[in-house]
Design a protein around this nucleic acid. Structure first.
Lengths: 124, 124, 124, 124
DNA sequence: GTGGTCTAGACCACG
DNA sequence: GTGGTCTAGACCACC
């Protein structure tokens, strides 16, 4: 679990952490039941404050992506019937608009979406 | 040009305005060369402060979506040579990850993307 | 006398006009005693309001670059012992700073300055 | 970091602040990686509003002169790959024209340019 | 503590 | 009438 944080970017650090963990889960890099690194270790590795990592974990728990486990600390949750957030769908529409204005064809855009979805190799 | 703002949401107002204008341009509701409402009028209609609208317009100018015309106010930009921002592509990947974890199939996700892209009807 | 105005730029139109006339005088394109186009004609050619051209002429008069002539309208003034404005010197310092940060060597910068000064060919 | 603002002048305050910071970076008074004063403190010291300083910082970020560091505030940018703006080159040509009309010789003008470039002592 | 956002109201430059 | 600038004071998100 290696984090790549952009300290200068506009995305808050805790959100960057949250996003990267979500992508790691989606790609299979992190499997259901697998233990996540401790807050302390992740904070040290990444050079950020523990509170920042803690906040990311808290949000991931609220969203149902991870869960606390008495024996093992924090683990990746089993798959659930989440749905895409209203907010995420909104963002998708905005991005699609930007793509359209940028002159992308529908095929090009869908190709990009397919690539994004297929990121971590085929799902079993 | 009618804005739907979510005053309670976490997305800054100026960003909501920016996003809706981008979508309006993408959908063809706003055509290249067409005048945008003045900062003042848009602010009054939407019940937000002038500075907030001004900030949205400033960002849209920097992004190349609109231009100031010293004689007529603000107009939709004509020439576009944008590319999708790195940031937007990043977001797309995160959303795709969320969709995958949510259990959507590739087909379902692409269907959603197609709908988002096709939003305002066919392009001329 | 052909003006190239950037309607979208941040420089006010009257200033753009003023600047181009100054450069035309410096380069010798406009000689001392020569008549300037009438406000009306210049406004029509350039597609701007007469008031805008008028404002540029007014400032040029105040700065001593042109003068009213009862018989001929407006003419280029004879050379005078102007000095560089404090404001212009300030700007020069800022530009030099930008050049330095941009990584230009002193030689490169001076070369650029020489080119700018020599713009309109050798002075007689 | 001490600012000298001309409250009566025509140059907007936020631009004066931006220009002085650029000059401070160019002269080496501010080094890459060094922290800039916080918006609040600079605003207090200079007797201007926070928003005004904020606007200057925002522009400097967009121009790549400084960067936000989410942990430490705002710092002078490290890597620079700028080029002189088209706008700055334009201004240089206008100033050179003014100098020429003012009767300066090429040598005198270049001497002034050299002084402007060499401002904060020799570069390391 | 930091920067980011927003308001209400004002003044000015531009065209 | 347009956009640009500024103020004084407030609240919030982030670290």
């Amino acid at each position: 679990m290696l984090l790549m944080l952009d300290l200068a970017g506009e995305t808050p650090l805790y959100l960057q952490i949250r996003n990267q963990i979500v992508r790691a889960i989606a790609s299979g890099e992190l499997s259901p039941g697998e233990r996540l690194p401790s807050i302390r270790s992740l904070a040290e590795q990444s050079g950020v404050n523990m509170m920042t990592v803690s906040k990311a974990y808290t949000q991931l728990k609220q969203e149902g992506y991870i869960e606390a486990d008495r024996r093992y600390g924090t683990v990746v949750a089993g798959q659930r019937a989440h749905r895409l957030t209203e907010k995420s769908v909104e963002s998708l529409y905005v991005i699609a608009g930007e793509a359209r204005i940028a002159g992308m064809s529908e095929e090009e855009f869908l190709s990009l979406c397919r690539e994004a979805f297929g990121e971590g190799g085929e799902r079993k």
